[in-house]
Protein backbone atom coordinates (compact mmCIF):
# COMPACT_ATOMS: atom_id res chain seq x y z
CA UNK A 1 0.00 0.00 0.00
CA UNK A 2 1.51 3.34 -0.96
CA UNK A 3 1.59 6.05 1.63
CA UNK A 4 -0.95 8.14 -0.31
CA UNK A 5 -3.49 5.33 -0.27
CA UNK A 6 -2.81 4.67 3.37
CA UNK A 7 -3.49 8.29 4.10
CA UNK A 8 -6.75 8.34 2.15
CA UNK A 9 -8.06 5.39 4.16
CA UNK A 10 -7.56 7.11 7.46
CA UNK A 11 -10.26 8.96 9.33
CA UNK A 12 -9.45 12.67 9.64
CA UNK A 13 -9.74 12.23 13.41
CA UNK A 14 -7.12 9.50 13.52
CA UNK A 15 -3.75 10.75 14.73
CA UNK A 16 -0.73 9.74 12.67
CA UNK A 17 0.71 7.34 15.23
CA UNK A 18 -2.41 5.24 15.80
CA UNK A 19 -3.40 2.36 13.57
CA UNK A 20 -7.14 2.51 14.13
CA UNK A 21 -9.84 4.65 15.70
CA UNK A 22 -10.46 1.91 18.28
CA UNK A 23 -6.84 2.01 19.36
CA UNK A 24 -6.96 5.78 19.60
CA UNK A 25 -10.18 5.84 21.61
CA UNK A 26 -9.09 3.13 24.00
CA UNK A 27 -5.75 4.84 24.53
CA UNK A 28 -7.38 8.17 25.26
CA UNK A 29 -9.88 6.56 27.63
CA UNK A 30 -7.11 4.86 29.57
CA UNK A 31 -5.11 8.08 29.64
CA UNK A 32 -8.06 9.97 31.06
CA UNK A 33 -8.65 7.36 33.74
CA UNK A 34 -5.01 7.42 34.71
CA UNK A 35 -5.24 11.16 35.01
CA UNK A 36 -8.20 10.68 37.34
CA UNK A 37 -6.32 8.03 39.34
CA UNK A 38 -3.62 10.65 39.76
CA UNK A 39 -6.28 13.12 40.94
CA UNK A 40 -7.57 10.56 43.43
CA UNK A 41 -4.11 10.36 44.97
CA UNK A 42 -3.78 14.15 44.91
CA UNK A 43 -6.99 14.69 46.88
CA UNK A 44 -6.27 11.49 48.76
CA UNK A 45 -3.27 13.13 50.43
CA UNK A 46 -5.59 15.79 51.81
CA UNK A 47 -8.13 13.23 52.97
CA UNK A 48 -5.36 11.33 54.78
CA UNK A 49 -4.34 14.49 56.63
CA UNK A 50 -8.00 15.07 57.41
CA UNK A 51 -8.38 11.54 58.78
CA UNK A 52 -5.31 11.83 61.00
CA UNK A 53 -6.43 15.08 62.59
CA UNK A 54 -10.01 14.00 62.97
CA UNK A 55 -8.66 10.98 64.82
CA UNK A 56 -6.43 13.19 66.98
CA UNK A 57 -8.93 15.99 67.69
CA UNK A 58 -12.50 14.64 67.62
CA UNK A 59 -13.81 17.44 69.85
CA UNK A 60 -12.45 20.20 67.65
CA UNK A 61 -14.06 18.46 64.68
CA UNK A 62 -17.42 18.41 66.38
CA UNK A 63 -17.06 22.05 67.34
CA UNK A 64 -15.86 23.19 63.91
CA UNK A 65 -18.46 21.21 62.04
CA UNK A 66 -21.16 22.78 64.17
CA UNK A 67 -20.17 26.16 62.76
CA UNK A 68 -20.79 25.01 59.16
CA UNK A 69 -24.30 25.28 57.77
CA UNK A 70 -25.82 21.97 56.73
CA UNK A 71 -28.43 23.95 54.80
CA UNK A 72 -25.90 25.76 52.62
CA UNK A 73 -23.80 22.63 52.20
CA UNK A 74 -26.89 20.61 51.32
CA UNK A 75 -28.08 23.14 48.75
CA UNK A 76 -24.65 23.12 47.17
CA UNK A 77 -24.66 19.33 47.08
CA UNK A 78 -27.95 19.40 45.18
CA UNK A 79 -26.59 22.02 42.79
CA UNK A 80 -23.52 19.96 42.08
CA UNK A 81 -25.39 16.68 41.65
CA UNK A 82 -27.75 18.31 39.16
CA UNK A 83 -24.82 19.80 37.27
CA UNK A 84 -23.32 16.32 37.06
CA UNK A 85 -26.64 15.08 35.69
CA UNK A 86 -26.76 17.83 33.07
CA UNK A 87 -23.19 17.00 32.08
CA UNK A 88 -24.14 13.35 31.68
CA UNK A 89 -27.06 14.45 29.52
CA UNK A 90 -24.62 16.49 27.47
CA UNK A 91 -22.71 13.31 26.69
CA UNK A 92 -25.99 11.65 25.68
CA UNK A 93 -26.97 14.50 23.35
CA UNK A 94 -23.53 14.46 21.82
CA UNK A 95 -23.73 10.74 21.21
CA UNK A 96 -27.09 11.02 19.47
CA UNK A 97 -25.90 14.02 17.47
CA UNK A 98 -28.07 16.75 18.95
CA UNK A 99 -25.66 19.70 19.07
CA UNK A 100 -28.29 22.18 20.12
CA UNK A 101 -29.17 20.26 23.28
CA UNK A 102 -25.51 19.49 23.89
CA UNK A 103 -24.86 23.21 23.99
CA UNK A 104 -27.78 23.72 26.36
CA UNK A 105 -26.59 20.93 28.65
CA UNK A 106 -23.11 22.44 28.81
CA UNK A 107 -24.61 25.84 29.51
CA UNK A 108 -26.71 24.45 32.37
CA UNK A 109 -23.62 22.68 33.75
CA UNK A 110 -21.61 25.89 33.63
CA UNK A 111 -24.43 27.88 35.19
CA UNK A 112 -24.84 25.43 38.07
CA UNK A 113 -21.09 25.45 38.58
CA UNK A 114 -21.21 29.23 38.90
CA UNK A 115 -24.10 28.96 41.35
CA UNK A 116 -22.07 26.52 43.46
CA UNK A 117 -19.05 28.80 43.61
CA UNK A 118 -21.19 31.89 44.19
CA UNK A 119 -23.00 30.27 47.13
CA UNK A 120 -19.68 29.07 48.47
CA UNK A 121 -18.18 32.55 48.41
CA UNK A 122 -21.21 34.55 49.50
CA UNK A 123 -22.50 32.36 52.31
CA UNK A 124 -19.46 30.42 53.38
CA UNK A 125 -16.08 31.97 52.64
CA UNK A 126 -16.85 35.68 53.05
CA UNK A 127 -18.63 35.44 56.43
CA UNK A 128 -15.81 33.25 57.71
CA UNK A 129 -13.14 35.67 56.51
CA UNK A 130 -15.04 38.55 58.10
CA UNK A 131 -15.60 36.87 61.42
CA UNK A 132 -12.20 35.51 62.23
CA UNK A 133 -12.40 31.92 61.05
CA UNK A 134 -9.43 32.11 58.72
CA UNK A 135 -6.44 30.37 60.31
CA UNK A 136 -3.37 32.46 60.95
CA UNK A 137 -2.85 35.99 62.26
CA UNK A 138 -6.47 36.99 61.71
CA UNK A 139 -7.78 34.06 63.74
CA UNK A 140 -10.35 35.06 66.40
CA UNK A 141 -13.92 33.80 65.99
CA UNK A 142 -16.50 36.51 66.65
CA UNK A 143 -19.93 37.57 65.43
CA UNK A 144 -21.89 34.50 64.42
CA UNK A 145 -19.01 32.32 65.41
CA UNK A 146 -18.49 33.77 68.90
CA UNK A 147 -19.29 30.37 70.42
CA UNK A 148 -16.14 28.92 68.91
CA UNK A 149 -13.99 31.42 70.79
CA UNK A 150 -14.72 29.65 74.04
CA UNK A 151 -13.55 26.28 72.76
CA UNK A 152 -10.46 25.21 74.67
CA UNK A 153 -8.19 23.96 71.89
CA UNK A 154 -8.04 26.85 69.43
CA UNK A 155 -5.04 25.28 67.71
CA UNK A 156 -6.95 22.15 66.77
CA UNK A 157 -9.86 24.31 65.64
CA UNK A 158 -7.51 26.21 63.36
CA UNK A 159 -6.33 22.91 61.92
CA UNK A 160 -9.95 22.03 61.20
CA UNK A 161 -10.53 25.29 59.36
CA UNK A 162 -7.16 25.07 57.63
CA UNK A 163 -8.21 21.74 56.17
CA UNK A 164 -11.69 23.10 55.44
CA UNK A 165 -10.29 25.97 53.40
CA UNK A 166 -7.60 23.96 51.66
CA UNK A 167 -9.88 21.07 50.72
CA UNK A 168 -12.93 23.07 49.67
CA UNK A 169 -10.58 25.58 48.05
CA UNK A 170 -8.77 22.91 46.06
CA UNK A 171 -12.17 21.53 45.07
CA UNK A 172 -13.37 24.97 43.97
CA UNK A 173 -10.12 25.50 42.07
CA UNK A 174 -10.82 22.32 40.12
CA UNK A 175 -14.25 23.72 39.32
CA UNK A 176 -12.70 26.95 38.03
CA UNK A 177 -10.48 24.91 35.70
CA UNK A 178 -13.65 23.11 34.65
CA UNK A 179 -15.34 26.43 33.80
CA UNK A 180 -12.54 27.35 31.41
CA UNK A 181 -12.72 23.99 29.66
CA UNK A 182 -16.52 24.19 29.55
CA UNK A 183 -16.39 27.55 27.77
CA UNK A 184 -13.95 26.14 25.24
CA UNK A 185 -16.17 23.10 24.67
CA UNK A 186 -19.21 25.35 24.23
CA UNK A 187 -17.45 27.40 21.59
CA UNK A 188 -16.40 24.21 19.83
CA UNK A 189 -19.97 22.90 20.02
CA UNK A 190 -21.18 26.07 18.31
CA UNK A 191 -18.63 25.36 15.59
CA UNK A 192 -20.15 21.89 15.18
CA UNK A 193 -16.96 20.17 16.18
CA UNK A 194 -18.74 17.37 18.07
CA UNK A 195 -21.12 14.65 17.08
CA UNK A 196 -21.69 10.90 17.26
CA UNK A 197 -18.35 10.35 15.50
CA UNK A 198 -16.53 12.60 17.87
CA UNK A 199 -17.80 12.76 21.41
CA UNK A 200 -14.66 11.76 23.31
CA UNK A 201 -13.72 15.30 24.39
CA UNK A 202 -17.21 15.78 25.86
CA UNK A 203 -17.09 12.37 27.52
CA UNK A 204 -13.65 13.09 29.01
CA UNK A 205 -14.65 16.46 30.32
CA UNK A 206 -17.68 14.75 31.80
CA UNK A 207 -15.39 12.30 33.60
CA UNK A 208 -13.45 15.20 35.06
CA UNK A 209 -16.61 17.00 36.12
CA UNK A 210 -18.05 13.89 37.76
CA UNK A 211 -14.78 13.35 39.55
CA UNK A 212 -15.00 16.86 41.02
CA UNK A 213 -18.54 15.98 42.05
CA UNK A 214 -17.32 12.83 43.80
CA UNK A 215 -14.78 14.84 45.78
CA UNK A 216 -17.64 16.99 47.03
CA UNK A 217 -19.68 13.89 47.85
CA UNK A 218 -16.94 13.06 50.35
CA UNK A 219 -16.21 16.60 51.53
CA UNK A 220 -19.87 17.23 52.41
CA UNK A 221 -20.33 14.56 55.10
CA UNK A 222 -16.71 14.84 56.25
CA UNK A 223 -17.00 18.53 57.13
CA UNK A 224 -20.66 19.41 57.47
CA UNK A 225 -22.03 16.28 59.11
CA UNK A 226 -19.65 15.44 61.95
CA UNK A 227 -21.51 13.97 64.91
Amino acid sequence: MSSAEAKADRSPYLAHHFESIEQQEESCTLGMWLFLAQEVMFFGGLFMAYAVYRYMYPDAWLEGSGALSIKIGGINTVVLLVSSFSMAMGVYYCQIGNSKNLFRALLVTLFLGFVFVAIKLKFEYFPKFAEGLFPGDGWGPHGHYADLASFGDQGALQIFFFLYFVMTGMHAFHMLIGFVILVVLMVMTKQNKFGPQRFMPILFFGLYWHFVDIVWVFIFPMFYLVT
Binding site: W33, G44, S84, A88, D213, I214
Partner: peptide
Protein backbone atom coordinates in the same frame (compact mmCIF):
# COMPACT_ATOMS: atom_id res chain seq x y z
CA UNK B 1 -21.63 8.25 39.78
CA UNK B 2 -18.67 6.16 38.68
CA UNK B 3 -20.74 3.32 37.29
CA UNK B 4 -23.39 5.27 35.40
CA UNK B 5 -22.43 8.92 34.95
CA UNK B 6 -18.84 7.90 34.19
CA UNK B 7 -19.84 4.84 32.14
CA UNK B 8 -17.53 2.46 33.98
CA UNK B 9 -20.27 -0.18 34.05
CA UNK B 10 -20.03 -0.27 30.25
CA UNK B 11 -16.24 -0.05 30.01
CA UNK B 12 -13.51 -2.58 29.44
CA UNK B 13 -11.97 -4.52 32.31
CA UNK B 14 -8.75 -2.60 31.91
CA UNK B 15 -10.56 0.71 32.36
CA UNK B 16 -12.16 -0.68 35.51
CA UNK B 17 -8.77 -1.65 36.86
CA UNK B 18 -7.35 1.78 36.10
CA UNK B 19 -10.37 3.44 37.69
CA UNK B 20 -9.95 1.37 40.84
CA UNK B 21 -6.17 1.77 41.09
CA UNK B 22 -6.21 5.18 42.78
CA UNK B 23 -8.64 3.97 45.45
CA UNK B 24 -6.66 0.80 46.01
CA UNK B 25 -3.49 2.80 46.55
CA UNK B 26 -5.31 5.13 48.94
Amino acid sequence: IVMFFMHVKYSSKLTKVFAASGFFWL
